[in-house]
Amino acid sequence: MPPALTLPDGRRLALDAAPLLMGIVNITPDSFSDGGKLRDAAGAIAHGVTLVAAGADIVDIGGESTRPGHAPLDAATELARVLPVIAGLSERTRAPLSIDTWKAEVAEAALKAGASIVNDVWGAQRDPAIAGVAARHGAPIILMHNRETVDPGLDILSDVMRFLDASIGVALAAGVPREQIVVDPGIGLFGKTPEQSLLLIRELAKLKDLGCPILLGASRKSVIGVITGQSVPADRVAGSIAAHLYGATQGAAIIRVHDVSEHAQAFKVWAAISQPLEPRP
């Protein structure tokens, strides 16, 4: 049977064709790229519906910024932001919803409200109970590498592999099947220099050794700005697409993006070029 993620409702997300596109809905005032853009649930719901219409296979909903220096958020405030959006999108689209959180309490409530996937930027190492939440609900879990500090001299690939291997161990011990675990190297300012982020994209295929599907999220990230000189995140779309297309050649199964329409068009062309043409009669 082709590789796939099985959702709590029994649906399967196939991972054997072109990468799935995960569209981003940030309900935060301080996200690095679009903080404050979606100030209420109605706007966030409408944006999510637009992303699905543009080609998003998954909608990722987050209520707490992960940018450097972000203000820590309590679970109650985070839930107040995300639950109305999850409920509204569940009514208006069949696209799977993922909850972008590291807190078990938030993940539990989000899955009960209609989310299908847990996306943890701390790889189940800040709140390991989140893995048990995913297991009980039969939900896939995305485990991202993260670091508190930046060390330019660090062998970042080895660090990522060790961290994610430990995260996978936490998830497996909690009862999440390996085929329901996705790994993410954490591109951007998650304890990495731009050079380290570039290396991780370049060596992305090595994450296959972990035995799990790979998510790549370089969308509008600072590393794209360093390369292109674009200081405004929204002006980094073309660079983001370039990074993600390369990542697809290295085995990325899911691509997390802000700009779904542009990525959908790029990946349609990429898929058409990649597939061998049928011989003419």
Score class of each variant (00 low, 15 high):
Asp60Phe: 01
Asp60His: 01
Asp60Pro: 03
Asp60Met: 00
Ile61Asn: 00
Gly62Asp: 13
Arg67Ser: 12
His70Lys: 14
Pro72Tyr: 13
Pro72Lys: 13
Pro72Asn: 10
Leu73Pro: 01
Asp74Asn: 03
Asp74Met: 00
Ala76Met: 15
Ala76Cys: 11
Thr77Ala: 09
Thr77Ser: 06
Glu78Val: 10
Glu78Ile: 12
Leu79Phe: 00
Leu79His: 00
Ala80Val: 03
Arg81Phe: 01
Val82Asn: 02
Leu83Lys: 03
Pro84Ala: 08
Pro84Lys: 08
Val85Gly: 05
Val85Cys: 09
Ile86Gln: 10
Ala87Tyr: 05
Ala87Ser: 09
Ala87Ile: 12
Gly88Phe: 04
Gly88Gln: 03
Leu89Asn: 10
Glu91Phe: 03
Thr93Ser: 15
Arg94Asn: 13
Arg94Cys: 06
Ala95Asp: 04
Pro96Glu: 15
Ser98Met: 04
Thr101Asn: 06
Trp102Pro: 04
Lys103Ala: 04
Ala104Gln: 09
Ala104Arg: 10
Glu105Gln: 13
Glu105Arg: 15
Ala107Gln: 05
Glu108Pro: 02
Glu108Trp: 09
Ala109Met: 05
Ala110Glu: 02
Ala110Trp: 01
Leu111Tyr: 10
Leu111Gln: 05
Ala113Tyr: 12
Ala113Asp: 07
Gly114Asn: 05
Gly114Pro: 03
Ala115Cys: 10
Ile117Val: 06
Asn119Thr: 06
Asp120Arg: 15
Asp120Ile: 12
Asp120Trp: 11
Trp122Gln: 13
Trp122Ala: 15
Gly123Arg: 11
Gly123Ser: 10
Gln125Val: 06
Gln125Ala: 06
Asp127Glu: 08
Asp127Trp: 11
Asp127Pro: 03
Asp127Asn: 09
Pro128Glu: 08
Ala129Cys: 00
Ile130Met: 06
Ala131Val: 09
Val133Leu: 01
Ala135Glu: 09
Ala135Cys: 13
Ala135Trp: 08
Arg136Phe: 09
Arg136Val: 13
His137Lys: 12
Gly138Leu: 14
Gly138Phe: 14
Ala139Asp: 04
Pro140Asp: 07
Pro140Gly: 02
Pro140Val: 07
Ile141Ala: 09
Met144Ser: 01
Met144Gly: 02
His145Ser: 02
Asn146Tyr: 05
Asn146Gln: 04
Arg147Asp: 04
Thr149Lys: 14
Val150Gln: 01
Val150Trp: 02
Val150Asn: 00
Asp151Tyr: 01
Asp151Ser: 06
Pro152Asn: 06
Gly153His: 09
Leu154His: 07
Leu154Val: 07
Asp155Trp: 08
Ile156Thr: 07
Ile156Gln: 08
Leu157Arg: 15
Ser158Met: 09
Ser158Cys: 05
Asp159Phe: 08
Asp159Glu: 14
Asp159Pro: 03
Val160Thr: 12
Met161Leu: 15
Met161Ala: 13
Met161Tyr: 12
Phe163Trp: 12
Ala166Gly: 14
Ala166Lys: 15
Ala166His: 15
Ile168Lys: 11
Gly169Tyr: 15
Gly169Met: 12
Ala171Gln: 14
Ala173Lys: 15
